[in-house]
Design a protein around this nucleic acid. Structure first.
Lengths: 348, 348
DNA sequence: TCGGGAATGGCAACCGATTGCGCAAGCCGA
DNA sequence: TCGGCTTGCGCAATCGGTTGCCATTCCCGA
């Protein structure tokens, strides 16, 4: 251990409830009731015990308590990272929604256990870790393997998922309207005179697939055929978006708009264009998805489909706590809107 | 609860070790030893028990285990957000380092409990939450109130901090060399012909203060006096950086370089300049701090002082686990280097 | 003075695992 | 055949709280 640490103060420091009880001259059960605020302890006894607890720096042992009460007051949050790309988590979208979840949980007196591995993945280890550590689970993203998630949710009742309302699922979801988001982006691009669109994103990913679908559907009746629209499937990260975009336009592509599945990808795409001397938005318009905090401050400002992470986090927590309370969770679809900034301004 | 869920399969599902023991026809203790891999259980008994566990879907109860073993196998990670700006957490720097910490902990079989409130803050509640939930604590950032953190660490031995080696502290730190980082930025700016520097960041924040100090010290002997250098103190977020930069240059400032305390701030500053028609790097060079994943992909690419979050996370975990193992933690200073990209290329 | 009931507090079982210690069976050599 | 040693397994205590139920005290009216 470290040296040179000052001697700890010599006041009484209690480790267990029994010690408190001993000093206070009451039974453990009375201490427990005093803490719980039971009305079966007189006001003065209660006050005396609480003061003693405060002075002695005693803190309740949460494991012992939760062993007895059968609740952990902990919610596990799982990021559905893909096996191939663990860095996915560094997307600010995740930190924003986790921050919101963390705040809501704290307000309700719950802890937040963060997992990066899928507990529904293969292998007993993953499953072992997932059980009995938390009262409920919030999963961020349905990922590329919604069936596995579904099987997991079937066996574990207290699961709420950030994602899309896909049919046949065994869990409640909170999320934006991905198809609408895609359609909003598509309409806006068409309206600003774009004709040859590129979609950047992994359509095998449930939510991304819906965004693509929305984009394509918004094209009907506009005179733009979907075979003018290029769909480039790629993982969820900046490097792939940069490389793909760069290769596409180095090849002399004549596309005039990009819709990316995330802001991170959109920002990287803009950079690829810029490196090639292609102007944004004059030559190519770019729209992202998420509206991360940074979207407003990159150069040029990023037009994007907003997912309200603050509201999303709150809704997820509300949902999971209502399941714990025995109530049925309801699906929540958050308002989904396009935020127009420079990267997709009108053609000059 | 939800309706329409398929009936759960009718295989035997064990909830407790006692049930396993009963079915296997052995004592609970034998089951426990079989799981722990004790050599006091014969190979065939062990195999029989493990197979039964696997088939029955039994998962050990981590609270009961940790109550008995007196260890939680959980590490708490605390983000030193400021009271005034809770959104601070959305900085990708934090998510990157948390991702790395999470991976290292998982490799070592530890869970990650995420806290956003300072457990060393005022109020018994905050303290209550902090105790006995985890075996150790990793604090990200010393923040603006290192004394409070110090007092906290005095009472809680198993604390490791991401931050700077300030004197008198009661904890071990892992971090970059902030003064060196500041100096590297300063030297590079001078070398590329810049003379009138601006520093953006809250110097009351321990690490930021050191970065500023490093910048100023690198100026000696260069002919640039420190009173040519402007220090603008501001919180740690994009909006403030944008506003401050914009106001400064709207006022017709003749500064030719900005060094920001974080990449997020640098990116926002670039945007403010761009909105005013100031060219980066031709008119003003910009250097950030952190080298977040996005720094490489923004437009223009961000020159920045790299903090290796992957190595940092690993070192933090190694340190806290070594304290738990009874060994003394050692301070770790990570390699600190400047990554030059377009935002501070040579003057054209 | 005595019985009844409200108010307060204590006893002990319990949550689900881990582990020191003791016991029984099997094996060996003498 | 017998004692001693090794190996495998079970008993029961234990971790630190919570809570049903019973015991005690006190106050009051009859």
């Amino acid at each position: 251990m470290k040296t040179g640490r000052p001697a700890t103060s010599d006041v009484f420091r209690a480790r267990t409830m029994a010690e408190i009880a001993e000093i206070a001259g009451v039974a453990e059960s009375t201490v427990s009731r005093a803490i719980a605020g039971s009305n079966r302890v007189s006001a003065e006894t209660k006050e005396r015990i609480l003061r003693l607890i405060d002075e002695s720096g005693y803190r309740i042992n949460s494991r012992a308590r939760s062993l007895r009460t059968q609740e952990t007051r902990t919610i596990e949050v799982v990021i559905a990272i893909s096996e191939t790309n663990r860095q996915h988590f560094s997307d600010p979208f995740f930190s924003q929604i986790i921050a919101s979840i963390g705040d809501s949980l704290a307000e309700n007196g719950y802890d937040l256990l963060l997992s990066r591995a899928h507990p529904w993945g293969e292998g007993a280890l993953a499953d072992t870790l997932a059980v009995k550590r938390a009262d409920g689970v919030i999963v961020i993203g349905q990922g590329r393997n919604p069936e596995a998630l579904n099987r997991y949710a079937e066996r574990h009742p207290n699961v709420i998922v950030w994602g899309a309302r896909i049919p046949g699922r065994n869990y409640a979801v909170v999320g934006s309207d991905n198809a609408l988001g895609g359609a909003l982006a598509g309409k806006h691009l068409i309206k600003s005179g774009r004709r040859r669109l590129v979609f950047l994103g992994d359509v095998n990913h449930v939510e991304v697939g819906l965004r693509h679908l929305g984009l394509v559907s918004s094209l009907t009746g506009t005179g733009v055929t979907s075979d003018q629209t290029l769909m480039l499937s790629m993982p969820f990260d900046s490097a792939s978006a940069y490389e793909t975009t760069r290769r596409l336009f180095e090849g002399g592509a004549r596309h005039d708009a990009i819709f990316a599945a995330s802001d991170l990808m959109a920002i990287a795409a803009i950079r690829a264009l810029s490196d090639l001397g292609v102007r944004v938005p004059e030559d190519v318009a770019v729209i992202g998805y998420d509206d991360i905090a940074l979207a407003e401050y990159v150069t040029p400002g990023l037009t994007t489909v907003r997912q309200d992470t603050a509201a999303g986090g709150r809704a997820l927590v509300e949902s999971v706590l209502s399941v714990l309370g025995g109530r049925a969770p309801t699906d929540v679809t958050l308002p989904t809107e396009l935020v127009v900034r420079q990267s997709c301004g009108a053609r000059k």
